[in-house]
Every structure is written in structure tokens, then in C-alpha cells.
Amino acid sequence: MPVLNLSGLHKRFGGLVAVNDVSFEVPRGSIIGLIGPNGAGKTTVFNLITGNYTPDQGDIFFNGKKINGLLPHKIVKLGIARTFQNIRLFQEMSALENVLAGRHGKMNVGILASMFHTSRHRREEQLALERAIKELAFVGLEEQYGNLARNLSYGNQRLLEIARAMAADPQLLILDEPAGGMNEQETQDLLGLIATIRNMGISILLIEHDMTLVMKICDYLVVLEYGAVIATGPPAEIKRNPLVIEAYLGSDDEDD
């Protein structure tokens, strides 16, 4: 069973059809790239999967269970974590606290235990701190744990978002332009990081404009144009697909 399965997704905003009959699946343990020109509806597809939008039509299955209509935090709890195209960290909080946010859904103590700092609360808090440091170390930000998120470099902020997502124990990680704004070296590092995550058994779905990165790392690509899937296949095949070439050449190259 694929980890994620989209079937016939539709989403309209007013008169605009943002997502038009999109279906594809993410096999377990694979890296799938979602590509396409700007305004093709890629981020909207992500927002549908993560529950930030609800589809007008169609279904989303995660591990065979229908998840459309669930609230985002429920979907995170089931095992889908994400990053954002325009970084959405808690800018005025420390790197450590940002990662703790991702761990939040795995903690259980309630309001009274929190207010009286019961021993259960302290134990759980310690485990969460340990785990948060582990995730920070994993993306190489361990030393920066006390710094405010807004004081991190752009590339490090993207890594911090990944650490926050990883702290939620995802089975599927959704990355929205993870290399956006990164330099050459950082992009190379990111490639290694993504490969490591996959080798831990976590499936990855990503949007990326850096075609070298996409071609190098993805097992399979899904190409969107005007909200519809125009091609799917392994990178080598997609590269030669005339429809894809036309979609890309026919559009300008600004950022979304």
C-alpha cells in the first residue's frame, strides 16, 4: 500500500480552478517531486494534503485511511509533517522551542499537570528536550539551540523547519521548496539530508524549482500545469517529455 494516495482532487477559489482532477501516489520509502510552472497549483495540492484546505471533490488516503476534512494537527498526528514555502517559524522564539513545537503532538500531559509541574510533566518535558536537541543536531543546528529563529540565516531557517517537522515522527515529510534561497553548498548538504531521511524509512514529497536537485534525488516526478497533472514518470523520462518541455518553455521564470 502506498503511504499516500490522492484520487481525483479538485479545488476552486472563486472562479479559479486551482487543482483540477489531480491523482497520484507516493510509494512507501520513495522521494516524489511535484514540479510545474509557477501558479500551477503545487502548493495548493500540499495544503490539501496537510488539511490547511479541504478539497471540493476527491479523496486523500494516508496509509489507506481517508484523511480529507481532518484538521491539520490531526493529520500531523497521523504522520504527515510539512515545511512552508515562505518560511513559517516562530520567529520570536528560540530554535529549541521551534523544534519543541513539532514534538508537541507527541506529548500528553494536560493543563493541571502543566500548572503543578507533576513528575510526569517533568519526565515528559525532559524526553522532549532530548529529542529536540537530537533533531537540531541532525540538521546541524545544535549549537544554535538558544538563538531566536529570526536570527538564523535563511538556509538555517529552512533546516530548522525540517527539524521541527522531523520532531513529529512523520512517516511522510512534505517539503515546499526546501532549497529556496540556499547557496550551492547548502543545497548540496540538503541533498544529503533528504537522502538520509529517506534511508530512515520516511517517505518524502517535495516541491522544488532547482531542477538539478530534483533530477538527482527524486525517484518519480509529477508535473502540474494549470492545476492538472500533465505528466508522471521517472526524472529521465520527464526530461524528454515534449508536453513538459513546452509547459516550461512557454512560461516565464519568476518565483511564486
Binding site: 477559489f13 502548493t43 495544503n47 490547511n52 484546505y53 512552508f84
Partner: peptide
């Protein structure tokens, strides 16, 4: 008023 979607 018109409905608008929140930009994410």
C-alpha cells in the same frame, strides 16, 4: 463581502 482564501 467576497470570500477570499487565506494565503499560506
Amino acid at each position: 463581502g467576497e470570500r477570499t482564501a487565506e494565503k499560506i
